[in-house]
Simulated scan of single mutants.
Amino acid sequence: MSAMITLMEDFQKFFMHYQNVWNSCNALEMNAFMSRDIAIRWAGPEASISDWGYEEAKDGWVEAYQQYEGQNPKWHFKDLHITPASENEVIATFCVTFEINGQLVDAAKLFVQRFRKEQNDEWTLMREYCEHLRSECIISRV
């Protein structure tokens, strides 16, 4: 049991860092968290679905940050559930809202991400699922 507690304590520290890097708008740092074998599925509005691998995800961070350059973007995270999935993997479920130039954007996303702690003690994002939500569903809770 103590190994799982240690894993979770380590993950919590990492996850705070991960969210700070996300808000730093540094695509290179965000891309460094991803496994080369990452599998990503985004379910968009109106039932659209996109599946991505490493290259698409890497390019996606670059494009997203370029799109918001100079607009003071900020993402707000609401952790819903974080649980160990194995002796070296953790699944994090969280919602994200977003603001540009201090104005909340009418959008929210639900993420389920699976991370693995590697032998070098670094955390790697293995899988991600994202679902678009109406912002009023979570705005008051973030």
Rank of each mutant, 00 (worst) to 15 (best):
E56I: 00
I49W: 09
K13S: 08
L125G: 06
M16H: 10
F98T: 07
L104N: 02
H76I: 06
D79A: 12
W22R: 12
I49P: 13
A39Y: 02
L80H: 03
Q71V: 08
F77N: 14
S140V: 04
H81Y: 03
T97R: 02
I40Q: 09
D37W: 00
R134M: 10
W75A: 10
A64T: 15
V62S: 11
Q12H: 12
Y65F: 13
C137L: 14
S48N: 12
P84F: 01
E46A: 15
K117I: 03
A85Y: 00
P84N: 01
L104G: 02
G53F: 01
W52G: 10
I38T: 04
D121V: 01
H17V: 09
F77A: 13
A43P: 07
M16L: 13
M4E: 14
Q67M: 13
V105F: 01
K117A: 04
Q19S: 09
A92H: 07
G60R: 05
A108E: 04
M4Q: 12
H76N: 15
W42S: 14
Q66D: 15
V21W: 00
E131K: 05
K78I: 04
W22V: 04
F94Y: 13
W61P: 10
P73Y: 01
R41L: 12
K58P: 07
N101Q: 02
D79C: 05
I139T: 01
M34R: 09
C130M: 10
Y129L: 15
I38Y: 02
N120P: 09
A85H: 08
D10H: 03
N120T: 02
D106A: 11
A57G: 07
M126I: 10
L7I: 13
L125N: 10
A43Y: 05
Q12N: 07
Q66F: 07
M34L: 08
V105P: 11
Q71S: 13
W22N: 11
H81M: 10
Y65I: 05
E9G: 14
D59F: 03
N72K: 03
G53I: 00
N26E: 09
Q113G: 10
E136Q: 14
M1N: 11
Q19P: 05
V112Q: 14
E46Y: 12
K13L: 15
I5D: 13
A3K: 14
F94E: 11
V96M: 10
A64K: 03
H17D: 05
I40F: 03
R36M: 04
A27E: 06
E9R: 14
K78M: 10
S35F: 02
W123E: 03
